[in-house]
């Protein structure tokens, strides 16, 4: 198992290398000059060239990449072109806020999705299942920004229960978290419903019933641990998607996290910040997937690591 984890982490390094090259190339292939973006459209060409030199943009792309990676392994992600701060500082300042938001979003998603899935499976084709499925369908179909704006309007503005937007304590993450959860929970509930239905009609569930197990025991002690396995896989994918989702949601709610940082960096062609946030997100997603794979083996004893 330890050697499995080490091998997986080795794989993760390769993935990161690949992503870094792709991001680097794309960031510099955009037909716009970061130096021009910094100095403004009306600045003289000479100034642009000077800034180019300052930032090392006059060197060929491969050399720039090697320099970047060399700094990276020494823990230096460079300076932001625009914000005049080291990228590591910028990420450090924002990562807590985004982590809180992402965690809240994910937990709310599970809190909504898993019970909905279990209920739909247990009451399959009964009225309560139809209601749950309808809710799930609505959730899946609604665009994130729409749900976000509705929640903002009703809960934030009309009812005045929670802040409409901004960054702060716990209160500020509920609405954005809920926005993500409402639009994403349905994937968990559908997945869980399908796998629970499958499991509930399996032979070992019949065995449990034949022992005299109560319905609650059958569902929670026998079915759920088997039924949750596909949802676990999705959990890994979802956390990757979560980063993308959080970018939009942070934007909608004016929440200053990594997403917002990345969006601003992209519009400013602030390449070091783009690189930094993308690599950070990638490293995180890859790590989560290793964790999920290890969790698999804990939930399902048939899986061995080799």
């Amino acid at each position: 198992m330890i050697s499995y984890i080490i091998r997986r982490l080795g794989g993760a390094v390769i993935v990161l290398l690949g992503i870094s090259i792709i991001t680097f190339v794309i960031a510099f292939l955009v037909p716009a000059n970061p130096a021009r973006a910094i100095v403004g459209p009306h600045a003289p060409e000479a100034l642009v060239l000077q800034v180019d030199k300052q930032l090392g943009l006059d060197q060929p792309l491969p050399i720039r990449y090697v320099n970047y990676m060399n700094n990276l392994v020494h823990g230096n992600l460079g300076m932001s072109y625009v914000l005049d701060q080291p990228v590591t500082n910028l990420i450090e300042q924002r990562v807590g806020a985004t982590a809180q938001l992402a965690l809240a979003a994910w937990v709310l998603e599970l809190v909504i999705g898993i019970p909905l899935g279990i209920i739909s499976a247990v009451y399959d084709r009964k009225i309560i299942d139809h209601i749950a499925s309808l809710l799930a369908l609505i959730g899946i179909s609604l665009p994130v920004f729409f749900v976000g704006l509705e929640l903002m309007y009703w809960i934030g503005f009309r009812l005045n229960w929670l802040p409409v937007g901004g960054t702060g304590g716990f209160n500020y993450i509920i609405l954005p978290g809920l926005t993500y959860a409402i639009t994403g929970a349905a994937y968990y509930s559908r997945l869980l419903k399908a796998s629970m239905l499958d499991v509930l009609s399996s032979d070992y569930i019949r065995t449990a019933k034949a022992k005299g197990a109560s319905p609650a025991r059958v569902i929670f002690a026998h079915a759920l641990r088997n039924g949750i396995i596909p949802a676990l896989t999705y959990g890994g994918i979802d956390i990757a998607a979560l980063f993308g989702g959080v970018v939009v949601i942070e934007d909608v709610f004016g929440y200053s996290g990594l997403g917002q940082l990345a969006v601003q960096a992209i519009s400013n062609l602030d390449v070091p910040v783009i690189m930094g946030t993308v690599l950070f997100a990638t490293a995180f997603v890859v790590l989560v997937n290793v964790v999920v794979d290890v969790l698999y083996g804990i939930v399902d004893p048939r899986i061995t690591y080799s």
Partner: peptide, 28 residues
């Protein structure tokens, strides 16, 4: 009633099935 029947199942009347490969819970 199911609650009464559950007291009989596995207690007074037990059952074994045709498919030993799938009749045991894989995660317990």
């Amino acid at each position: 009633k199911d609650t009464s029947m559950r007291k009989i199942r596995g207690n007074d009347i037990a059952m074994i099935f045709q498919e030993p490969m799938t009749s045991l819970n894989p995660v317990h």
